[in-house]
Each structure stands twice: as C-alpha cells, then as structure tokens.
Measured scan of single mutants.
Amino acid sequence: MSIQHFRVALIPFFAAFCLPVFAHPETLVKVKDAEDQLGARVGYIELDLNSGKILESFRPEERFPMMSTFKVLLCGAVLSRVDAGQEQLGRRIHYSQNDLVEYSPVTEKHLTDGMTVRELCSAAITMSDNTAANLLLTTIGGPKELTAFLHNMGDHVTRLDRWEPELNEAIPNDERDTTMPAAMATTLRKLLTGELLTLASRQQLIDWMEADKVAGPLLRSALPAGWFIADKSGAGERGSRGIIAALGPDGKPSRIVVIYTTGSQATMDERNRQIAEIGASLIKHW
C-alpha cells in the first residue's frame, strides 16, 4: 500500500482519535458579512469528516447552483462504474471539434489522439474542462443518470439537468442544476469515506481534487503551510461562485467545507476574496 493510499485508508482512524471539535460562531459572522459585502445569498456548511456531524452552517438547506462543483460527483459516478466493471479508466475516447464547448483548455489539445477516461476526469476536476465533463456525462448516460446515481446514494436534493455550459445559467428560483450545502457536503463525505467506492477509487477521487489547479484564489489562499486540501470550485452566471473541499491540518483532511453564493453584482475577484476570507476565519478558529 502506498503512503497516499495509507493516508486515505486511515482518515477515519486518525479522526477518531482527534480531540473533540467545537464550532466557532466567528466564522458564521464572516459568512454573514460576506453576504453584506456581496449583496447576495451565501450558503455555508462545515462537517466533521469522521462523524458527519454538522459543526457550523448557514442557509444549509437553500438551493444554490452547483456550477462546476458537480464534476466531482460526476467522476465519482464514473469511478463507481469502474468498480462495477462497467468502465475502464484506460479506455480512450475520441471526439471532434464539434464536441468542444466553451472553456476546454485540455480537451482542445487532444482532438487528434483523444483522451482516456482517467485523463478526462483529471481534466474535468483539476482544470474544470467543460468538454471533458460533457464527454464523461455521455459515458454514464447524461445528466439524468448522474441525478439517479445521487438518488441511489441517498441524495434526493442534488440534481443535474443540463450539460456544460448551460448548467451554469443560475436563474433565480430555478431548481435545475442545483444542490443544497448540506446535501453536497453529505454526498461528498460519502464519496470520500464511505463504502460506495473502493479504496482505490476513493484515493483516485481525492487525488484529482488535491491536484486542483484553478481554485488557488479561494480556500487555498488562506491555508497555512502543512495543511491538506482537496477541492473543486465552480463559477456561473449572475454572480455565482462555489467551492467544495476536504481539508485539515497535519497533512490530512478532517472536515468537509461547502460554500456557495449566487445573485451578486460583485466582480469575480471580490467573490473570490470573500470566500478566501471565510476560509481564513475557519482556519483561525479551527
């Protein structure tokens, strides 16, 4: 067993022997301040990774656009098919120029040779490549099948209805392509620590998230040296922004954090800054 596999296998073990965790309302004060600064709703939840206990939450059962955070769930569904012998990570998928959609920095470079399922998941999570996500959605049967996968996990809230990039439209009061912070946090925890996926697939999923290259201005910008984070960000229309993450000190994750916002007129930089400040408060009061 590799060191990384050992780390993920012992996530519940280490967490069980940690000192009790206590909620700190100071972080919620910052979440509410972010709402004021952005002029928009902000949803927040913080779960203990081992027990699933909610440590703090704000608007945990209000719907927010998922945006690209759905790509972690998508690759979880792909990995479940791999575990069941219905898919192979090494299978190569070929596609054409007509398949390319807006923001496809990886797939646009491989029109000639195609990409493997493993490479597509890596591109979808680490670079948020939209064509990679659409190609992977095709392998599982489309958005409705991802929703069905989530329902089978016990998540009857999260739903995907459309493809990239239309799913980022974020129309107010439109339930399409949305989740709730509580539902997303619980589902992410199941994917990373539950028995739904094999140990190898859980490790692969967290490795992809740990290698995320496009979430630097968010929670990662607030992390002290030595902290662990595996995350996936999302951005959408109407001032929408979000991030889902597993993080913790001492090089291992111990909490799940989900943050979503929508309806702001603020710039992307300002949305990023507010999420980073929430992260800084979380870490300060850990």
Rank of each mutant, 00 (worst) to 15 (best):
M268A: 08
H110W: 09
G236I: 02
G39Y: 08
Q97R: 14
I206H: 08
I93E: 04
L74I: 08
I229K: 00
T158S: 12
D33M: 13
R59D: 00
L137Q: 05
H285L: 09
D113S: 13
K53A: 14
L135T: 06
P181I: 05
T158A: 05
N152D: 14
W286A: 00
A40H: 03
G43W: 01
P249W: 03
R118K: 13
I275P: 01
Y103S: 07
N50S: 14
G242F: 01
A77S: 11
T69R: 00
L247Y: 03
L55Y: 11
F64H: 02
D250Q: 14
G52N: 08
W286M: 06
V101D: 10
S128K: 02
L135S: 04
E87H: 05
A170P: 09
T179A: 05
E108S: 15
T261Y: 07
P217Y: 08
R63Y: 08
P224M: 05
T116S: 13
L28F: 08
Y44P: 01
A215Q: 03
G76H: 00
R92T: 14
K144L: 11
F149Q: 08
A84Y: 10
E270M: 09
E46A: 11
K252P: 06
I206W: 10
G154H: 08
V106R: 07
L205V: 06
Q86L: 12
K232R: 05
N98F: 14
A245M: 04
L219W: 04
L150M: 13
A170M: 08
C75E: 05
L136P: 00
R273I: 11
L160E: 04
E87T: 08
F64I: 01
D161R: 02
K30V: 13
A148Q: 12
H285N: 15
T193K: 15
D33S: 12
E62Y: 07
T138W: 14
T186M: 15
M209S: 00
M209P: 00
L55D: 04
R63A: 07
Q274G: 09
N130E: 00
T112P: 14
C75H: 00
M268V: 10
W286I: 04
R118Y: 12
P217Q: 12
E166N: 13
V31I: 12
R255A: 04
C75P: 01
L120K: 01
Q265I: 14
L191H: 03
F70H: 09
V101L: 11
L192K: 01
I229V: 09
F58D: 01
D113W: 09
